[in-house]
Design a protein around this nucleic acid. Structure first.
Length: 271
DNA sequence: AATCGCGCCTGACGGC
DNA sequence: TGCCGTCAGGCGCGAT
């Protein structure tokens, strides 16, 4: 399940092979992703130069003069750089073939991802225009999140996972950040005081930054490689550790569902 | 306006 | 062995 650090690692991994290249062809083997892959993309993308590869939240954007490709990896998606004649596997749905004999290949077994094409200003696209701030920029700060949370009864975990409030905080890192900040995931967002938002915002930034730094060590795998970068390399404090000892106080880590999602926390450290 | 819950889809896993 | 049921999970969207 790619979270923001995995998407950013992907962006950095494909960038050197994609940026500045001309698109020679697009192969669509499976159209049925989250939304049907638009067929007009096949001829409208041809001969376009990819002048930049941008990330917005967990979306990746291939920016061209005529428009932009919008990609989301969903639950199980990945992008690889492969040699032009590399045989496609069962779930290799789309190839974007470049003028350097390489292809950008989208694989997505569960097909929760998407690949769209827009000719308008991509940031005005309906999937992007209402997104909250990037977590690693300065405009995402405690004052912002605090003000935004006033009057909200929603659980803090759901609040920070809502992309309208801040993008890129997925299920794993939401649990991890709340543990770091000592905040119980079920606490109402509107009942968290400003000093605690200071700690929480700092925790979100740190946990994402650390994961990106670790993802960077597997960058080489994007070229002819098959290894997944990700959070497996880092030690998670609470996620997936139900009934195991809290690394801080030794209490049993609990799991419960919050808004349909598995959530992990320490009942003693988090209030 | 805020919030809740659904459903897209497949692989992994456990039970028999 | 192999089949089948269950579950996970990002996120947009419709319902409340």
């Amino acid at each position: 399940m790619p979270e923001l650090p995995e998407v950013e690692t992907t962006r950095r991994g494909i960038m050197p092979h994609v940026k500045g290249r001309r698109i020679m062809a697009v192969v669509v083997r499976q159209r049925q992703l989250r939304y049907p892959v638009p067929l007009r993309l096949k001829h409208e993308l041809k001969n376009q130069i990819v002048y930049d590869v941008v990330r917005r939240g967990k979306y990746l954007l291939l920016c061209c003069d005529a428009g932009s490709v919008i990609i989301h990896l969903g639950m199980s998606g990945s992008l690889r750089i492969v040699a032009r004649d590399t045989v496609a596997g069962k779930h290799d749905h789309i190839d974007i073939c470049l003028d350097n004999d390489l292809c950008l290949r989208l694989r997505d077994p569960r097909r929760f991802g998407l690949l769209l094409w827009t000719r308008r200003n991509v940031m005005q696209h309906r999937l992007l225009r209402d997104l909250g701030p990037e977590p690693l920029t300065l405009d995402f700060d405690s004052e912002y999140l605090y003000q935004r949370s006033r009057g909200r009864r929603q659980a803090i975990k759901q609040f920070i996972m809502d992309s309208h409030n801040v993008v890129g905080v997925g299920n794993i890192y939401a649990s991890e950040s709340l543990f770091m900040a000592g905040i119980h995931p079920l606490r109402a967002a509107g009942r968290v005081a400003l000093p605690r938002y200071v700690v929480l915002v700092d925790a979100i930034k740190r946990v994402l930054q650390q994961a990106i730094a670790q993802g960077g060590t597997t960058l080489r795998d994007f070229y002819y490689g098959d290894e997944q970068p990700g959070y497996f390399g880092q030690s998670l404090q609470v996620y997936g550790r139900e009934a195991q000892d809290c690394r801080v106080c030794g209490s049993g880590i609990r799991q419960r569902r919050i808004g349909q999602r598995a959530s992990y926390y320490c009942p003693v450290c988090q209030r």
